[in-house]
Design a protein around this nucleic acid. Sequence first.
RNA 1: GCGAGAGUGGCGGAAUUGGCAGACGCGCUGGACUUAGGAUCCAGUACCGUAAGGUGUAAGGGUUCAACUCCCUUCUCUCGCACCA
Length: 953
Amino acid sequence: MPRYNPAVVEPKWQQYWEAKKTFAAAKSPVGPKLYVLDMFPYPSGNGLHVGHPEGYTATDIVCRFERMNGKSVLHPMGWDAFGLPAEQHAIKTQQPPRVTTEKNIATFRRQLKSLGFSYDWDREVSTTDVEYFRWTQWIFLQLFDTWYDTAAKKGRPIAELPIPAEVSAQGGLAVDKYRDEHRLAYQLEAPVNWCPNLGTVLANEEVIGGVSERGGHPVVRIPLRQWMLRITAYADRLESDLEGLDWSEGIKALQRNWIGRSTGAEVDFYIGREPGRNGKPHPAEFKQWRDARGASGFPRTAGPEVLRVFTTRPDTLYGATYVVVAPEHPLVERLTMPDRKAEVQAYCEQAARKSDLDRTDLAKHKTGVFTGSFAANPANNRPVPVWIADYVLAGYGTGAIMAVPAHDERDYAFAKQFDLPIIPVVDPGEGSKIRAEVLGGALCYADHGTAMNSSEYDGTPTAEFKTKITAELARRGEAREAVNYKLRDWLFSRQHFWGEPFPILHELDDAGNPTGRLRAIAPESLPVNLPPMTEFKPHGRPEPPLEEAPQDWLYVTLDGKRYKRETNTMPQWAGSCWYFLRFIDPKNSDALIDPALEKAWMPVDLYIGGAEHAVLHLLYARFWHKVLFDRGIVTMREPFQKLVNQGMILGELEITGYQRADGSWVSARDVKEGENEKSLHRQTGEELRAVRVASADAKKEGDSLVLVADAAIRLDSRAYKMSKSRGNVINPDDVVKEYGADSLRLYEMFMGPLEATKPWATTGVNGVRGFLDRVWRMIVNDRADELEIHPAVQAVPLTEEQDRILHRTIRDVTQDIRRLSFNTAIAKMMEFTNFYTGCEVRPREAMEKIVLLLSPLAPHIAEELWELLGHPETLAYEPWPTFDEAKIRESTIEIPVQILGKVRGRIIVPADADDAAIEAAARADEKIAPLLEGKTIVKTIIAQKRLVNFVVK
RNA sequence: GCGAGAGUGGCGGAAUUGGCAGACGCGCUGGACUUAGGAUCCAGUACCGUAAGGUGUAAGGGUUCAACUCCCUUCUCUCGCACCA
C-alpha cells in the first residue's frame, strides 16, 4: 500500500536537491532578480525552535514561487555565531568556544536541511569564520577612517577632516587627537557592570536589581575604556530614510521612537564665571555679557559662564522658575556655594551609586539639592535658583534643563516636593475644564494654548510663540534652534573572548606604557585572528580576557615601534550588520563584495525575522550600510526594502485553576499576581497553587471559563511563551518525525497571519497532515501494491465546473502568496481538494496544476507527485500556472435580496443581467413579492450585482 | 504614563473598495464501512427557539439603504519604550 510516507519522500528529495544543486543561485541574476533574506539565527545549544521555521518557511514559499515565475532568486543562510553562551560554556567545561559553536551549527544545519528549505548552501557563512570577520574588521577600519561632515551630511575620509589652525599649531600629537575625536569609531571611558565575585563584566540584562543574574553577587558600575560608534551622527538620516521603505508602520514607529528626534531650542542662562553676592550673577558683568552676546551671536559650545539648557518648549521660558542640572554636570562644582558643598557632594555620590534602573524606578519620588547659586532667565533677566537632581539625565540634551513646573509633569512634581514657585504661562483656553486649576497653579498643563504672564507675548498661540521667542533670543545671541535625539552612540566593545578582535594597535613607549596614539592595522594585513587560548576562566580584573592572551599575539612590533593589541572584542551585533552583503559574494578574498554584484543583487527585496530585532539589529545594520554608502562601497542608501516581522509562536493553550494548600478551589477572579509570578489570594493574600485543568473539566459560561464541577470557580485560559521551565517547548525534530516536514511547514503557515502571535496546537498539525494525505490519495492509487496514479486521474478535458474551480484556485492562491497570506492560500487548496476528491474523473491537467500550486508550501510531496505524474525533472523551475478570468465567470449568479438590510430571499439570474433585470427578478421572487405587497418602495439599491436591497415604508 | 497592535463560534482563524458574518482547519455530535480504529467516507455543528422567527463580530453611541469594516467614548489583552525636558 503506497501510503503517503514523508519519512521516505522527504529525505529522497532533499538528497536530490542537494546532489543536483537545484537551488544554487547564479553568480549574477539572469533576468529580474529577487533577494529574499531570513534573519540568520544564533546557533544555540538548544537547536532549532519552532519559531525559526515560521519565517523561514514564509521566505522559502516566496522564493520557490518566484523561481517558478522566472525570477533569479538569491536565498542564502548563515550563522550569527559569536555570542555569550559559547563563552560561558567554555568557562564551565574548558571546551573552546569554536568547538561548541561548530557543533551547534552542525545541528542547526541538519535541522534546516530536514525542513527542505531552498537555500543556496554554497553561500553559507558564519560570522565566526576568520575569512568572514576579516571583512567585519575591514568595515571597522572604514568606520575608524571616517568622520561625519555635518554640513555635507555625509561620512568622509578622516584625511579630509579640516584641522583648525590652533590645533595644527600644537603639533602632530594634537592633530592625531583631534582626528581621533572625530572618527565614527572613537574611544571613551564609559561605565560597565563589574562583578568582583564573578570576576567579569556583565551585560545590562545580566544584572537584575543591582546584583548578578547568576549567583546574585553585587555589581558595581566602574568606568572602563570603551569603543563607541558615532551612530548619532546618522540619526537624522536613519529617521528620514525610513520613509521610502516598505516596512510596517509599527516597526517604523518603533525605530523613530528609539531615535527620538525632538526639536526645540538651546538657551543660555547666565551664571557668571564666579558666583556673585548671594550666589546671584553680578549685574554689571551680566549686562556686559549680554552686550557681548548681542555682538558675537550664540557660540557653538557653551562657556563656563552660562548654563546651556535644551527645551522643546521655549514658549514657556517666562514660566521657568528654576534650573536643574544633572549630578554629573561639569559645572556642578562652580555652581555649588561653599555652604552647600557637603550636601551637594553627598547627593552626587549617592546618585553615582544608583544604576540607571534605580533612578527611573524611583521616579515617583523626586530627589534633589539646591546649589545655592542662581542663573539669569534670559526672558526677563530674573535670577532663578539652580538645583541638582537626578531626574535630569546627563546624557541627554545639555544635561541641564529650565524647569517650568506649571507645564511639565516632572518639574511640577519636583516643585511641589521642594516648594518652588509655579507660574502658569500657557492658558489652556476658555473651553478647558481644568483652566481654573491650571491658572491657579494647582494643576500641570503640558499641552498647547495661548501665552500669558509672558509680557509682550501674552495671547500668542504656543506654536507661534515658540518660533518668535527662539528667533528673538537667537538675535540676541542667547539661544538657537536645536535638535536632540534619544539615540545614544553605540557602545561597541565587549570584555569577552568570543568576538571579533579590533584591528587596532596601541602604541607603547619605551617603558611599555600606552602613549595614547592609535594605529590601525593595514587592511591588507587583515584578518586579526583570535589567539589560541588554553584558559577560559576569568582572570579577575575588569579588563577583557584577551589581556591574558599569549604575549606573541598581544605585542606587535611594526616599523620599529612596539604596540599592544586592542583586547576588547566587538559585540555580537557586528557580524549581523553586513552579512547580507557577504551572501552576494561569499568567497571573495579580494574585497568585501564585488561592486558589480552588489549593484546587481542589492537591495534585499524581502527580509523576514522576529520582532525582537525590530530596533537594534535593523538600526545598526542600516547605520553601517549608510557609512559604506558614504564611502562608496555600496550603492544603496538602505539595505532592506521590504521587511516583515513574523509573530511569535506560543505554547499550547493552557487552562489554569487555582487551589489553596488544602486543595480547595479559588475562582480566578479572586487571584492576583504577586512577585516572581506567584499567585496570591486577592483578599487573604495566601499563596495559591496554579494547576493545569484538562479542557474536558472546563466549560464556557457567559464570558468566562469555569470548572464543570463547580461553575462558581472561574479559570484562566491563555497561551504562554515557550520556555524550558514551563515545559511547553515544541521541538521541530519531533514534529518532522511524527508528521513530516511538509506538515510542519504547512501547519506553521496555516496557523494564522504571518505577523500575528499565535498559540501552537499539535492537533492542528494533524489536521494539515490529513490534508496532505487527501492530496496524496486524490492522485495516488492507495489500493495498488506499487506506487501508481489513481485510476480516476485521466487525460481528459475538464468539465466547465472543474475548469472554473481550477482557475479560481490558481487565481486565489497566486494572489494570496503575493500578499504573504499563506493561511488563506492553503484554505483555497483544501477547497480544491475537497471538490476534486469527490470527482469520479480527475483530469490530469488539474492534478498537475494543483501539484505545482502546492509545491512552494509543501515541496517534498509535490516533487514526489510531480514525478509520479510523469515528469523526471524537478518542478522547481516549472512555469507557475496561469488562470483565465473568463473561465472563472459563471453563467448564472446568485444574488441575495434584502428588505431593509435583512436578507429575505435569493434570486438566480444570468451573469450578464443588467440592474433592471435583477430588480425585476427580485420583485418577482416568491419569497420577496409577498413581503413587498402593500409597502411603498422608497429606494432600491443594486450593489455591483452582488446584492439587492429594497428600502420600504 | 507614552507609542504600536489586537479583541469575531468550544479553539486557530476567514471576510479586495462598507454589500449574504463565521471560508478553511481543529474539536464535537450522528451515521456508513469495519474484528478493531488515533484509518477512511458521509451529514451536522454561532447563539436562543420544537418551529416560525429572533439575536449576534469586546461594551456603548453615531454616520449609512447597508457597518467586523468608517467616526466618537469606554473596557480588556499583547508588545515596545519609560524622568529623553
